[in-house]
Amino acid sequence: MYYLGVDVGSVSTDIVLIDENFKIIDKVYLKTKGRPIKAIQDGFRELKKYKKEEILAAGTTGSGRQIAGYVIGADVVKNEITAHAVAALYIDKDVKTIIEIGGQDSKIITLKDGVVTDFAMNTVCAAGTGSFLDRQAERLEIPIDKFGEYALRSDSPVRIAGRCAVFAESDMIHKQQLGYCEEDIISGLCEALVRNYLNNLAKGKEIKQKVFFQGGVAANAGMKKAFENALGFEVYVPEYYSYMGAVGSAILAKEYYEKGNKTKFLGFNIADLSFNTKTIDCSGCSNRCEVVEMLRENKPIGFFGDRCGKWSEKVKAS
């Protein structure tokens, strides 16, 4: 018997199955490509070998958690901060700080005695997140999975302005034109991003050991090393660093099941159903909500974005 966790992020969609002992049985990693529903369906197609009855509960997380929740019939729809904390705590109860950098946002979570005590999420700038690194790798024509290696080969990183993605990029171009080698520029970039992270996001937060570094960007060994250099101690990258959100949401689903609840999971066959969304400009009052209607096989299964609940109640009633 398994628990399902789905993490629909801006860049990637991760799906995991865990068993009663929290062991990861199966996992799927896909690019979201701006089509969360399609990504989930593609992922489910790969998981069709499991029966619906084998799933005791399902959870969703990530920025697309709401839509994913409707599509798969999730029991627990939780934000990614909680999901990441839950997953990290399961792996190591002594973790005190989580550095999580994903495709579009970065977070810091501090924990004490197994409870989240504080967190912050980037508000103004996407510099340092996965998409930005992706773009720079593409521009330098270096495969993103080699990015870290390049950084590690450098002895004297170049100082790059890391405050803002646009300025960081122009500063990198400038440094390239001055003739610095790629390794030093990439390593400098990692340092700039870490500096930016510590000075902005982690400002005023105490970073206590043990520190976990998770999210897609943790794959980049250069970033890990830059964090270690700046902090002066070791930073741990858990084995399933890029699946942590999904693992967390599967654990939350397990909690839900163990409280004696029944699952609403719709099964892996939803991969073959048609899903559509429609935008409605509600003119019911001067709030003028933009309501999104979700359709499965042309039947409405969910509405979001209405303030008064006029639309979303329709589904609950039927």
């Binding site: 920025s63 934000n79 901060i81 909680t82 946002d105 989240v116 967190f119 999420m121 508000t123």
Partner: peptide, 13 residues
């Protein structure tokens, strides 16, 4: 989205 995530996470906390 980010705003809601923060509120939700804070309530969880």
């Amino acid at each position: 989205t980010g705003y809601m995530t923060r509120i939700e996470a804070f309530l969880d906390l």
